[in-house]
Design a protein around this nucleic acid. Structure first.
Lengths: 217, 217
DNA sequence: TGTACATCAGTGAACGCGCGTTCACTGATGTAC
DNA sequence: TGTACATCAGTGAACGCGCGTTCACTGATGTAC
């Protein structure tokens, strides 16, 4: 949606558009930019170009660059929590729920590469203190939800009772993180779905109860 | 080692120091800065202040800011490979080796917070193309070493033969990543040693052979 | 139906700031004689 | 032992660039009358 010029070469003025629409376009463009090149590469000029307006027009719709980031963070949180909600509504015991959450989460991160980029971004850590806190809260909240599923599973015997729920929750995140981080490193060599199918059974075997007599190996 | 002033308040000139020494001081200061505030916060002014010289003096010892980053990357690679080497020299079968590597790796990342900050940095991804490639090579090399241990373990029956070595290696990294990433998120609440003690058995149970008859759960 | 006016998004020029880098100069240290 | 000179790290001023942000102005759209 770049700025176009007429056949005669004159530059077209961007069509006047409602602020509400522009805000969504801007947030979308920002997310695309972050996904493609990281939070560092996010610039007002880059956003404006993608939306098809002039940089200064940006300020008709957002108060500042940080305001867009805030809006994006809200979107991320919504997406992450939607996954948790969906899984919670599914019937099934803890292991099935965790596997379902893993699949959704991995897919979410692989389709929205802006999410890991933002979570790992040191730009955000160095930015507004409130922003860093917001990211923290999002991840901590997600972690708490996973922990909750683990505790439920331990109560009804579907998961091993001796394990620390926190440790299991952190390990669960550890199943997801590499798909987002290592992807760049090893190029296209990591098929996410295949990875989940290979990794999940290993994790499941580790967290479900094991037969008596094997406890001390 | 900030710049000092005499009692009478006059500013002292930094003592003339061999370039070789200064280069180490500068690299050290840069690593400290990255560990504390991330790659984004790395500035010539910040380095100079920590070393106790004036920003422009930096250029007596390095050609550019990128050159320091290159030097740091070399140091990181050395540290990571040292761990792999050490583990390789230890006797023991694959599971013991992996646990040892996990402990070393977790400790390394928790003591050198600059490492994860650099690996996850989008600043580096947006910088020199060669730098991104260098990071990729480091991580890919590490991954290859882990894979090698896994394959050996599968050959002598200490690890389950059906598992994809690549998937196991990626999962292994997944055990380590959260300790580096989630630490900020949950504050001091994650005791790394305790996490390893809790997470390792789960992982081990998943990758070692399991009794016949349990294969299909 | 037509005219005057208010609203508000779009525009280009300009500002200010941070920051990497350059440069001419200083002054300490070591070496040649 | 003393003097002249080369070397090289330290210094402050200045430059240039990118980039977020501001501002006065433009012009399209909708509304009141």
């Amino acid at each position: 949606v770049n700025r176009k010029s007429h056949q005669d070469g004159r530059i077209m003025r961007a069509p006047k558009t409602e602020t509400e629409v522009r805000q969504e376009q801007i947030a979308g463009a920002a997310i695309d930019l972050i996904a493609a090149e990281g939070v560092n590469a996010l610039s007002i000029a880059g956003i404006a170009q993608r939306v098809g307006i002039v940089p200064s027009a940006f300020y008709r719709h957002f108060k500042s660059k940080d305001d867009v980031l805030d809006a994006i963070l809200d979107q991320l949180q919504t997406m992450l929590l939607a996954n948790v909600e969906a899984v919670r509504k599914e019937t099934g015991r803890a292991p099935e729920r965790l596997k379902s959450l893993l699949q959704r989460h991995v897919r979410l991160l692989s389709e929205n590469r802006a999410i890991p980029r933002i979570v790992f971004s040191d730009s955000i850590n160095g930015g507004r203190p409130g922003q860093k806190a917001k990211v923290k809260r999002i991840v901590a909240g997600y972690l708490a939800e996973v922990r909750k599923i683990v505790v439920e599973g331990q109560r009804d015997g579907a998961l091993q009772a001796e394990l620390s729920p926190q440790a299991v929750a952190v390990m669960f995140l550890g199943l997801v993180l590499p798909t987002a981080v290592i992807r760049d490193v090893i190029g296209g060599r990591l098929d996410v779905d295949r990875y989940v199918e290979a990794a999940w059974p290993v994790f499941e075997r580790g967290i479900t109860p094991w037969p008596a007599g094997l406890k001390n190996r």
